[in-house]
């Protein structure tokens, strides 16, 4: 008998011939957040900053300038545009002049770059979480991992209140990365230290106001 048949057979033995009905799952926890949109943006900013990300807010016409400011804060002024890689689908209006664009180069080459700029798929206010889904505006997973500084642009319509709302907007078949602050560890005396293997700096550009949308 194959291992597969044997393990499945053991499970059937363990559960018995006459199986108990499947227990009911009551979902009376919160699945929506009714707070006004503006308040959710404030909560998102508060939670991002609490976990040591920095946040710059701007209107829809100032995104490229604010991304430049974000890179200034993460890299210091005077960074070379060619050392910053943008996701291939990042809207042209969001890109500072002269940025490199990710292509199908071997992913480890991204480790030589100073920073990357991506969009997000969803942001969760209550937990201060950004979700990237591997579509062209977000880029492949290595892009938001290897450069030491990550700039993410979030538009107001992408912000949801809580975790259940976020999963409803995501495609589980895509490679998803949930990011809550810079990389961190609590492995030494359970004290949180920011900055281990992932980007040590996370700067979020939050775009709100009329027509603040990526699509």
């Amino acid at each position: 008998m194959s291992a597969r048949e044997e393990v499945l057979g053991r499970i059937r033995t363990a559960l018995g011939e006459t199986r108990a009905p499947v227990p009911e799952v009551v979902r009376d926890y919160r699945t929506t957040d009714d707070r006004p949109a503006a308040e959710l943006l404030d909560v998102l900013v508060d939670r991002l900053e609490d976990y040591k990300a920095s946040v710059l807010r701007c209107g829809p016409d100032d995104v490229a300038a604010t991304v430049t400011a974000a890179l200034d804060s993460g890299l210091g002024t005077g960074w070379a545009p060619g050392s910053v890689v943008a996701a291939p689908g990042l809207p042209a209006a969001w890109r500072p002049e002269g940025l490199d664009t990710d292509d199908d180069r071997p992913p480890v080459q991204l480790a030589e770059r100073a920073a990357s700029v991506t969009a997000v798929a969803v942001a969760i206010a209550e937990t201060g979480t950004l979700v990237l889904d591997g579509t062209p505006p977000c880029g492949r997973r290595a892009l938001s991992l290897l450069p030491d500084c990550l700039v993410c642009v979030v538009t107001a319509d992408q912000v949801v209140g809580n975790v259940p709302e976020s999963l409803g907007r995501l495609d589980p078949l895509r490679p998803l990365t949930m990011i809550s602050g810079p990389s961190a560890t609590s492995d030494i005396e359970l004290q949180r230290v920011e900055g281990v293997h992932g980007p040590r700096t996370l700067v979020v550009v939050l775009v709100s106001g009329a027509a603040a949308t990526i699509r």
Binding site: T129, G134, R174, T177, M178, A184
Partner: peptide, 27 residues
């Protein structure tokens, strides 16, 4: 929601990765 708050005492852990099978050009 249950896991990060119970384990490291964070609202959300810094990184959660999810994938389904193989994605061409990514990973």
């Amino acid at each position: 929601q249950l896991l990060p708050r119970s384990s490291t005492g964070e609202r959300m852990n810094p990184y959660t990765s999810m994938w389904a099978g193989v994605t061409p050009g990514d990973g």
